[in-house]
Amino acid sequence: MGLLSTVLVKSYVEFWGRKWNIQDISAVVVLLALHCLCLFAPFHFNWGAFWVAMALYLLTGLGVTLSYHRNLAHRSFTLPKWLEYSFAYCGVLSLQGSPIEWVCTHRYHHQFTDTGKDPHSPIKGLWHSQMGWIFDSSYRFGQCGGLKNVEDLKKQLFYRFLRHTNLLHSVLLGGLLYAAGGFSFLVWGMGVRTVLVLHNTFLVNSVGHMWGKKPWNTGDMSRNN
């Protein structure tokens, strides 16, 4: 058996042959449903649905980049609590997990960048760094010590509440979209919009660590592209 075949078989066994928990199965179901919704997009297009999707894309994208990433994970700046919580709630609607889990994963990513403990490094393959890591919560939170690096968020009732009700908020949003504009709003506002935000984020983990210029010797695989 060649090297490539060995790697592929090993990756297949590691992914499918491991123990799956309810969180992993839920992630598969949700992401599969979102991608399936996108298949209806060409047949249910209207400008109202499109602009709703774009508005939600902007809001939830800011929730991830401004709140989850810069404000909560890196503490690059501070905000009044009402504004911090508002942006964090927008992040919840991106379906990338609760603030506690997202920040935990990202902090471990920077602590162990492109090593065996990095939750989503391409050293385990393109599929793993793009999406595969999402379906293995035991790997994400078990390799490095669980949620020990987010005590600042765990102390706050709001973030604990979002962790336990994370999926519910997107379900409610989907219901509101359907009530407001029917199936087209659901397809574009939940399906297309969410998938775009998800993959824009995931590409940083995969492509951003595999292709592009590397002007600085950072000691990891991160690149400019």
Rank of each mutant, 00 (worst) to 15 (best):
Leu203Gly: 08
Ser170His: 03
Asn205Asp: 11
Leu177Thr: 08
Phe161Lys: 06
Gly174Pro: 07
Gly212Trp: 04
Leu196Gly: 07
Lys154Ala: 02
Ala180Leu: 15
Val195Pro: 10
Asn166Ala: 11
Phe183Asn: 07
Gly175Trp: 06
Val192Arg: 04
Gly189Thr: 02
Val207Glu: 04
Phe158Gly: 01
Lys154Pro: 00
His164Asp: 11
Ser170Glu: 02
Phe161Thr: 12
Phe185Ala: 02
Leu167Glu: 09
Lys154Ser: 05
Lys155Arg: 13
Lys154Gly: 05
Trp211Ile: 15
Tyr159Gly: 01
Tyr178Phe: 13
Ser206Leu: 01
Leu196Ile: 15
Ala179His: 07
Leu203Pro: 00
Arg160Glu: 09
Ala180Arg: 06
Arg163Lys: 14
Val171Leu: 12
Gly208Trp: 12
Leu172Gly: 02
Asn200Pro: 15
Arg160His: 02
Phe161Gln: 03
Val204Leu: 15
Met190Tyr: 10
Trp188Met: 06
Arg193Thr: 12
Asn200Asp: 14
Trp188Asn: 08
Val197His: 08
Asn205Pro: 14
Met210Glu: 08
Ser206Cys: 14
Tyr159Leu: 01
Gly212Tyr: 03
Val192Glu: 02
His199Asn: 14
Tyr178Trp: 08
Asp152Asn: 14
Tyr178Gly: 04
Leu162Val: 05
Met190Arg: 11
Leu176Pro: 00
Gly208Thr: 03
Lys154Tyr: 07
Trp188Gly: 05
Ser184Tyr: 02
Lys155Phe: 01
Val197Asp: 05
Phe202Asp: 04
Arg193Gly: 14
Gly208Phe: 14
Leu167Ile: 13
Val192Trp: 05
Leu173Thr: 04
Gly212Lys: 06
Val150Leu: 03
Val150Lys: 00
Val207Ala: 14
Met190Val: 13
Ala180Val: 09
Leu162Asp: 01
Thr194Tyr: 09
His169Lys: 06
Leu153Asp: 10
Arg193Phe: 03
Tyr178Met: 07
Leu153Met: 03
Gly182Ile: 01
Gly212Arg: 06
Trp188Leu: 04
Val195Trp: 12
Met190Gln: 13
Met210Gly: 05
Thr194Gln: 11
Leu203His: 11
Thr194Lys: 06
Arg193Asp: 13
Phe183Glu: 06
Thr201Ile: 07
Phe158Ala: 11
Val195Tyr: 12
Trp211Met: 14
Val204Trp: 08
Phe202Thr: 07
His164Ser: 06
Asp152Phe: 10
Leu177Ala: 00
Phe185Asp: 00
Trp188Tyr: 13
Trp188Val: 06
Leu186Pro: 05
Leu168Pro: 13
Val192Phe: 12
Ser206Gln: 05
Thr201Val: 15
Leu196Cys: 14
His209Thr: 11
Leu173Asp: 05
Lys213Pro: 00
Ala180Asp: 04
Val192Tyr: 03
Tyr178Leu: 13
Lys154Cys: 04
Gly174Val: 01
Gly191Ala: 10
Tyr178Ile: 05
Ser206Thr: 09
Met190Gly: 00
Gly191Asn: 13
Leu186Ala: 11
His169Phe: 14
Leu177Arg: 07
Ala180Phe: 12
Leu198Asp: 02
Leu153Glu: 00
Tyr159Trp: 08
His164Trp: 04
Ser184Leu: 04
Phe161Val: 15
His164Gly: 04
Arg193Asn: 15
Leu168His: 09
Phe185Cys: 01
Ser206Asn: 12
